Simulated assay, not measured.
Amino acid sequence: MDATRDAVGVDRDELAGVVDLFDALTREELRSALSELAYRRGDEFDADAADGAIDAAVDAYALVEHDDTLFAGPTAFPTLPANAEDLPHIMDVPERRVDREALGEAVRVRVAADAEAAIADGDEDRMASLLDVCYDVEAWAPVSLDDTRAALDRRL
């Protein structure tokens, strides 16, 4: 069981699955969904743990935050946790349109910046992780990370 599941009862892919169920959610909406799922499991909801789980999922590119909205990210395999199928009937979430090009470009810029930082720090583990993320992002959005991937390859 991973630390996210221990903290909020769902793993990163399930966080992405909840977000994907609605196409996109704000952090507050995702916290509300997690609170509802905790209630249905008979668990207490820990808002701080939820915030930490969301932050960790964003750091891992399982969730992507753009314009104050969360989207299922390129490294996620969105999966619905138990009882999540009822969330759309319980929560009042406005319909949102996703501009995949703008979202992809924002992620491309973030990956490039993260790669530059990892290279500058000499963090080979992070560089290797970001190299994998490059491939995931390119499959997920209409962007190219050729230059970033080449820079990471050179350093690894």
Rank of each mutant, 00 (worst) to 15 (best):
H89R: 12
A16K: 00
T75N: 15
D132R: 14
L34N: 05
A128R: 15
A82T: 12
G104L: 05
T148Q: 05
L21Q: 07
A62M: 03
E105T: 13
A3E: 08
A76R: 01
D20W: 02
E105R: 12
R31H: 15
S129T: 14
D68G: 14
D123C: 03
V137E: 00
A139Q: 13
S35F: 07
P88S: 01
A60T: 05
R155S: 11
A76Y: 02
R27H: 04
A53Q: 09
L152E: 12
I54G: 00
L130C: 11
L70F: 02
R96P: 03
V133L: 14
L37R: 08
E28C: 02
A16Q: 00
S144I: 08
H66T: 07
L37Q: 07
V107E: 01
A128W: 13
S129K: 11
D67Y: 04
L34Q: 03
V58L: 09
R108V: 05
R100N: 08
P81R: 11
V111A: 11
L25D: 09
L30D: 11
R110N: 07
E65I: 01
E28Q: 08
D132V: 15
R31E: 10
R40W: 12
A47D: 10
D46T: 06
A24Q: 09
D114G: 01
G122L: 15
D11F: 04
F45V: 09
A139I: 04
D86V: 14
R96V: 09
L37P: 07
E44H: 09
D132K: 12
A57K: 02
V111M: 07
D136Q: 15
V111G: 07
D51Y: 03
V19I: 11
M1H: 12
V133G: 11
S144F: 06
Y61S: 03
E101K: 13
T148M: 13
E105K: 11
A115F: 02
L21G: 06
D59I: 09
R97H: 08
N83S: 10
